[in-house]
Amino acid sequence: MRRFLRDNSLGLVFGLLFLAALVGQAFAGHADFNQQQLTEGLQPVSFGRYVTSASFAVDVTENWQSEYLQFFLYIFLTVWLLQRGSPESKELDKAGRESDQDQLVGAHATDTSPAWARVGGLRQALFSHSLGLVMGAIFLLSWLSQSITGVAAYNEQQLGNLQDPVSWGQYLRQPDFWNRTLQNWQSELLAVTSMVVLSIYLRQRGSSQSKPVGAAHTATGVEG
């Protein structure tokens, strides 16, 4: 068990932090929602009703879709785009899909290579792009979930204000939907830009996301 915890500590810790943050968001969101209810002269709702409501679901999914958009774009764009001096970039002479030898596929696969890296055809093609495809699929599903829960939450407000509800297609053209979407996109893209550029000049000793402390600022694709 101790070895399992050590070998999987990064994923386990981030998973626990995610659950803690999600629970914290649920309690804070419930309190904020009930404050708004009381301000509008309405009855507060139970915690269970809140965490199963469209209001809570849209707040969660709008963050998920922006995170997975960030990963999807980063995975695909770093195939071709480079940043001199950043450990987040490939080395400057390795732009593109790289050779089969570099990627250890087909005849260049090793004994420890995944089975689909050894075979050719569709299976190898799918496996070669599986990370980006899955991230992109999760982004699209999260964005779809945001739009569905968002229209439900929006229509609750519409009915509370004695206004007509809107259809899903109409909601996709509403400022509410794009305000929720773009405010998350811009923050994620700023975070990626900051990481790519700041890691050129700044260091974190021992981190795989940083260059070695003594590496030159121009060293590219080097992690320490």
Rank of each mutant, 00 (worst) to 15 (best):
A107P: 13
D93T: 13
P87S: 01
S66Q: 10
Q35G: 15
L69S: 02
A57E: 05
A107H: 07
R84F: 00
A107S: 13
A109P: 12
Q101Y: 13
R49C: 01
Q25K: 10
D102Q: 14
L19W: 02
E40V: 08
Y50W: 11
S55D: 06
T52I: 08
L104S: 13
T110A: 09
E91R: 15
G48T: 10
P87H: 02
Q25T: 08
P87F: 00
F72K: 01
S99Q: 06
V23E: 05
L42Y: 10
E88W: 12
T61E: 06
Q103N: 12
E67R: 09
F72S: 08
A109L: 12
W80D: 03
V58F: 04
V79E: 10
K90R: 14
R97P: 01
R84K: 11
S53H: 08
D100Y: 13
S55K: 05
R97W: 15
A95Y: 05
D32L: 12
N63W: 12
V105C: 09
Q35M: 08
F76H: 05
A107G: 04
E91F: 02
Q25E: 12
A28H: 11
L69V: 03
G96I: 12
P114W: 08
F56I: 01
V23I: 13
D111R: 14
H30S: 10
N34M: 13
R84I: 00
R97N: 07
D59E: 15
E40D: 14
S66Y: 03
F56N: 03
A57N: 10
F76P: 04
T112C: 01
P44I: 13
Q70W: 05
S113A: 09
E88T: 01
S113E: 04
S89H: 05
A95S: 14
K94H: 07
Q36R: 13
P44Y: 14
S99A: 06
K90D: 10
Q83P: 00
L38F: 02
V79Y: 11
I75K: 09
G106W: 08
V60R: 04
W80P: 00
F33E: 08
F71K: 13
T112I: 00
W64C: 02
Y50H: 09
D59W: 14
A31C: 02
T78R: 15
D59N: 15
W64V: 05
V79C: 07
H30N: 12
A20T: 08
A107K: 13
L22Y: 10
S89T: 06
T78N: 14
T39E: 15
F72I: 00
Q35Y: 07
A20D: 00
G96K: 11
Q70K: 04
F71C: 03
F56V: 01
Q65I: 01
F76N: 11
E62H: 05
Q101H: 11
G48N: 11
T52P: 01
D102F: 14
L81A: 09
Q35C: 02
L38R: 15
E40L: 15
Q43F: 10
P87N: 04
Q65E: 08
L42C: 03
A107V: 07
F72Y: 09
G48K: 04
V60S: 01
A31W: 08
L42F: 11
F33V: 06
F27R: 07
D32C: 00
G41I: 05
